[in-house]
Design a protein around this nucleic acid. Structure first.
Length: 560
DNA sequence: AGAGTCTCAATTAGCAAACG
DNA sequence: CGTTTGCTAATTGAGACTCT
């Protein structure tokens, strides 16, 4: 501790800061950073975005559109409260108009063949029916705490969490899935056909109508993901009364092959009715596609402008841009997440897709050898699991180094493991649910070994061999001991007199059975006592050890 | 003397934490 | 997530050991 303070007193960072302050009295704000990056201008994010628009008339139209009042019925409930209601049998209410619209959709889906087992997997839009901003996502997955009767703005899902964190208050935001059916994530999309066969078209139509209603009832929208980007243009292009007008921007890249903004006009009056932004899906921020700084900045700009114009408070102006350094760690979280889905569904992620997600990581020269091995992996084997195992090998290598073993982290782990063992040995822990689960597991293990399948398995054979080996070792040891003692002692064992007492009368038989039962009972009592004693000894041993180490630490600290 | 316990080995399953 | 260590308990069985 004192060391740290001394380091701080060395005032190296302080000196640097003073120098920095002298040269640069004002640190670059995030808005300035965005402006500089796109050579743009403006006093806020909305103005900066407008300054990027190439067509002057289009820009003026948008400015006129922005002067209109935003009509909205914000919700007044806690929008994530539904996550706590684990056994609810219907969807949480945010807004009565939305409830009406939603039950209508549910009825339509029921009408085209959905039964209750599928209905409960539907995810209802969050927020008001009449919203200032609409965030349109693609479809919900099983990566959630609330799989039945869930809502779209679900912060227990890694992707939706991005919206939850970016936006401080979603009460004016309608967050909706184009396809509200919970499906296992797949690169090919939801694949309705396999589930709904002949009804697919009807179902898709219901979803599309609802999605279109969401977009056309809000003045501003953010549409997420490549599939949605294509679909939304299609839906609105197909409307006779509407005109989709691309907004050309002065930026050096495209999103989904286009500019990330369109305005929707009334075909007759050419008046702007909606402004729609396109954004990468949350998954894009999770995986290690090389995150070009400008793309991240543009996402912040789009979301900030959309929020500003619709009167929605932003939590972090630079939320997407600031994530850059977090990507390596998030890649692992992402893989764990995907592996979780694999295990749950039993469906293995396509190797090609996995390679894409990992492309950044795998392209590093130190992994070349591993990449070669990965190429040979049979396609029915999980790529994710293989990668995790690879990571695990590296983790073991680290732990095998003297450096790690002597580190504080290693000491922390040793202490923690001791502490864990001590808690497991306490009476309190043994009464806990975890202990019960463990006991159940022991039973389960026993049951497994009782099966014919296990007994005929290779593992069982290995066990039998090991037992034989153990016995042989013991026999050899005995022989050596006997020889060492001089051999004379080895006595005649008692003869086999078992058969002689074979009962001839029923009474004798029952008495023998009784004796046997008594013996078993006595044995059980003894066992229990023995377990209790060993438990007490263990607790004492561990506590003594912990106390000893604590004392040592105390002493060494005192010396320092 | 006889009842009860312990020993060797590997395996089942779970828990406590750490790392990648 | 997957893997590690060292603990919980049980199983196999024969022989040695301990307690009553």
């Amino acid at each position: 501790m004192a060391k740290h303070e001394r380091q701080a007193d060395d005032s190296a960072p302080l000196a640097k800061k003073v120098r920095y302050d002298d040269e640069n009295p004002q640190e670059l704000s995030f808005l300035d950073e965005v402006k500089k990056s796109f050579s743009a201008d403006g006093a806020d994010f909305g103005q900066v975005f407008l300054s990027l628009i190439r067509d002057k008339d289009q820009k003026d139209d948008i400015v006129r559109f922005l002067e209109q009042n935003v009509v909205c019925n914000p919700v007044s409930v806690e929008m994530d409260a539904f996550l706590e209601d684990e056994n609810g049998s219907t969807w949480a209410t945010h807004d009565v108009d939305m409830d009406r619209a939603w039950s209508d959709v549910v009825e339509q889906l029921r009408g085209v063949g959905f039964d209750d087992s599928i209905i409960r997997l539907l995810s209802k839009p969050s927020g008001p029916q009449k919203a200032a901003l609409c965030c349109l996502w693609h479809y919900p997955t099983f990566a959630t705490k609330k799989r039945y009767f869930g809502l779209t703005l679900d912060r227990s899902n890694p992707c939706l969490k991005y919206q939850w964190k970016k936006i401080a208050d979603n009460s004016r935001v309608r967050t909706q899935d184009t396809y509200p059916m919970r499906r296992i994530y797949n690169s090919l999309g939801p694949q309705w056909e396999e589930l709904f066969a002949n009804y697919t078209e009807d179902i898709v139509n219901v979803c599309h109508d609802f999605a279109k209603e969401a977009l056309t009832s809000a003045p501003f929208s953010i549409v997420l993901g490549a599939s949605n980007s294509k679909l939304v243009r299609q839906l609105l292009d197909g409307d006779e009364d509407l005109l989709v007008d691309d907004v050309s921007l002065r930026i050096p890249f495209k999103l989904f092959g286009r500019d990330p903004c369109v305005v929707i006009r009334d075909k007759k009056t050419r008046q702007i009715l909606h402004v729609i932004f396109f954004s990468y899906h949350g998954m894009w921020f999770l995986v290690a596609k090389d995150p070009i700084k400008e793309v991240l900045l543009l996402h912040d700009l789009i979301w900030n402008a959309a929020c500003q114009w619709s009167g929605v408070p932003i939590a972090q102006e630079g939320f997407f841009s600031d994530r850059q350094d977090a990507i390596p760690r998030d890649l692992l979280r992402c893989i764990i997440q995907l592996r979780h889905v694999e295990k749950e569904s039993g469906i293995i992620l396509e190797h090609e897709e996995g390679r894409q997600i990992l492309s950044n990581y795998l392209s590093r020269p130190e992994h070349a050898e591993f990449v070669e091995k990965l190429r040979l992996l049979p396609k029915e084997d999980s790529l994710l699991r293989t990668v995790l195992q690879y990571w695990n090998i590296k983790s073991l290598a680290t732990k095998a180094t003297k450096n790690w073993q002597e580190s504080e982290a290693a000491q922390r782990q040793r202490d923690a493991l001791d502490k864990g063992r001590a808690t497991q040995a306490t009476i309190k822990w043994q009464d806990s649910e975890a202990a019960q689960r463990q006991r159940d597991a022991v039973d389960k293990g026993r049951a497994t070994r009782a099966t014919k399948k296990w007994q005929e398995s290779e593992a069982a054979q290995r066990q039998r061999d090991a037992l034989d080996k153990g016995r042989a070792t013991q026999a050899a040891q005995r022989q050596r001991d006997a020889l060492a003692k001089g051999g004379a002692k080895g006595g005649a064992k008692g003869g086999a007199k078992g058969g002689a007492t074979m009962a001839t009368k029923k009474q004798q038989e029952s008495e023998a059975a009784q004796r046997q039962r008594d013996a078993l009972e006595r044995r059980a009592k003894w066992n229990a006592k023995r377990r209790e004693m060993s438990r007490i000894r263990l607790v004492a041993r561990l506590q003594a050890k912990l106390a000893e180490e604590a004392e040592l630490r105390r002493q060494s600290e005192a010396i320092q």
